[in-house]
Amino acid sequence: GIDPFTGEAIAKFNFNGDTQVEMSFRKGERITLLRQVDENWYEGRIPGTSRQGIFPITYVDVIKRPL
């Protein structure tokens, strides 16, 4: 089901994660935001896939912030 505490964002740019914990994505992908890790990073996942990880806040347009 849908978790009411998650947020939502759209990727503004392609992001290629450097490490296992970073999640790569392509511009235009819809991302579920799980939490804000710190002032620069979100943790999120791509709905319908097993992809999950952290990524820079500046790479996405936030539609709804996670609670």
Rank of each mutant, 00 (worst) to 15 (best):
L34D: 05
I2E: 15
R35N: 06
Y42K: 00
I46R: 01
W41Y: 12
P56A: 02
Y59P: 00
F25M: 04
G48V: 02
G28D: 06
G28W: 05
R26S: 12
I10F: 06
V62K: 04
G48A: 06
E8Q: 10
S24T: 08
G1R: 07
K64E: 10
D61C: 15
E22R: 06
P66A: 06
R51Y: 03
T19L: 10
I63Q: 06
V60L: 05
N40A: 11
M23N: 01
I63M: 07
I31V: 05
W41K: 05
S50Y: 10
N40H: 14
G44I: 01
V60A: 04
K12D: 02
K64P: 06
S50L: 12
Q52N: 07
P56G: 02
Q52G: 06
L33F: 04
Q20F: 11
V21H: 14
R65N: 13
Y59N: 04
T19H: 11
G48C: 10
L67N: 15
N40L: 14
E8T: 11
R65P: 15
N16I: 14
S50V: 09
E22P: 02
E29N: 02
Q20S: 15
L33V: 09
A9T: 03
D3A: 11
I57L: 09
P56T: 02
K64A: 06
G1S: 12
S24A: 07
G28T: 02
E8K: 08
Y59W: 06
P47Y: 09
E39A: 12
F55Y: 01
I2W: 13
Q36K: 10
D18H: 15
Y42Q: 02
V37H: 07
F5A: 11
R65H: 15
Y42D: 00
I2G: 14
G28K: 03
L33Y: 03
F25G: 00
V62D: 02
L67Y: 06
G44V: 01
T32Q: 11
R30C: 09
R51S: 03
T6Q: 11
I63R: 06
D38L: 06
K27N: 04
N14S: 10
G17P: 06
P47N: 10
K27T: 09
T32P: 00
T58P: 08
T19D: 13
T32V: 12
I2R: 12
F13W: 11
Q20A: 15
N40F: 14
I57G: 09
T19M: 09
D3L: 12
A11N: 00
Q52C: 11
L34W: 06
E29S: 02
Q52L: 07
R30K: 10
I57E: 08
T49W: 02
T58C: 15
P47H: 10
Y42W: 15
Q20M: 12
I63F: 07
L67D: 15
Q20E: 15
R26N: 09
R26M: 13
R65Q: 15
G53T: 01
D38R: 08
S50H: 10
V37C: 09
G44H: 00
Y42P: 02
F25V: 03
T6V: 12
T6M: 10
G48E: 07
I46F: 04
R35H: 07
E29V: 03
G28I: 01
T19V: 08
F5I: 09
I10S: 03
V21F: 14
G53I: 02
F15A: 00
K12Y: 03
Q52K: 11
D3P: 11
R65Y: 15
I54Q: 06
F15M: 01
Q20H: 12
G17Q: 04
E22M: 13
D3K: 11
F55Q: 00
